[in-house]
Amino acid sequence: MARAKSDTRARAQAVAKELFLQQGVRRTSLQDIADRLGITKPALYYHFSSRDELVRSIVQPLIEDGDAFVAAAEARPDADPRAVLEGYFDFQFAHREVVSLLIGELVALADLGLVGRVLDWRTRLSALLVGEDPPLSAATRATIALGGLADCVLVFADEPVEEVRAAAVDAALDTLGR
C-alpha cells in the first residue's frame, strides 16, 4: 500500500510539473492534475493538501540540493572559482526543469517564499567569487557570471551538456576577470 501511495505521489508531481511548465502554476488546478492522472480530486488531496504543498514538493529537492551545494562550497577554504562555477552549472543542469519553472513562475513561487532562498544562494556564491563587501563593479560581474551560467543551462538545452558547461564556465570566469 505504501508503494502505491508513493507511486501516485511521484506521478502527481511529474504531471503537475509538466502542467505547471505548460500552463503556469496559477492556471493549473488540482482538478487538471487529477484529470490527467485519471484519479479523483479527493484522491489527489490524499497526497497533497493543496496546490501550494504540491508546488513545494516539486521545488523542495532543488532547495535541499542548493542549500547543500552552497554550504559545501562555503566549507572549502580558498574555494577555486572554476570549481564553484562548474558545481553551480551542474546543480542548475540537474534541476533545469524546476529552474525553468522558477523563472516562468517567479511571482507565484515568490508568494510561496521559494525565490528568496535562490537569491540567498546567489549572494553567498558571489561572496565566494569576489569576497565580502566587494566594490559594485565586482559584485556586478559576479551577478552576471552566476546568472549567465544559469541561463545557459536553459537557453542551450539542446546542445551537448559538456560543451555548454565548458563554454559557460569559461565565459563566467572571463566575466569575473579570471
Rank of each mutant, 00 (worst) to 15 (best):
L112C: 08
L106T: 09
V130D: 10
A108F: 07
A110L: 11
V107E: 15
S137G: 07
A139N: 10
L129V: 05
G113N: 12
W121G: 04
E132T: 11
A138S: 13
L136H: 08
L119M: 13
S126K: 08
G116T: 02
T123D: 03
R141A: 05
A142G: 08
P134I: 04
E132S: 10
A138N: 06
A138H: 11
R124T: 07
L109I: 09
L112T: 08
L106H: 13
D120K: 03
L129C: 06
E105Q: 14
A110N: 15
A127F: 01
L106Y: 14
L125E: 04
L128T: 04
L125W: 02
P135V: 12
R122K: 10
A110T: 14
E132M: 02
A110E: 15
L119C: 05
T140L: 15
L136P: 03
S126M: 07
L129K: 07
V115T: 13
W121I: 11
D120Q: 07
E132R: 13
A110D: 15
D133L: 04
W121T: 10
G116P: 00
E132L: 05
W121P: 05
R141V: 00
P135D: 15
D120V: 06
A139Q: 12
L114Y: 03
G131A: 14
L129F: 02
L136T: 11
V130Q: 09
A110M: 12
G131N: 14
A139C: 04
L119Q: 08
R124W: 02
A138Q: 14
R124Q: 06
D120Y: 02
W121S: 07
V130P: 08
V115W: 04
L128M: 04
A127I: 11
S126H: 08
G116K: 00
V130H: 06
L109G: 05
W121D: 12
L129P: 06
T140C: 08
V118W: 10
L129R: 06
L112I: 11
L112H: 08
D133P: 00
D111I: 03
D133I: 01
S126A: 15
T140P: 03
L114D: 00
R141H: 00
V118P: 00
R122F: 10
L109Q: 11
L119N: 06
A127P: 01
A108H: 03
D133F: 00
R141D: 01
P135Y: 05
G113P: 13
G113M: 14
W121F: 14
V118K: 05
A110Y: 12
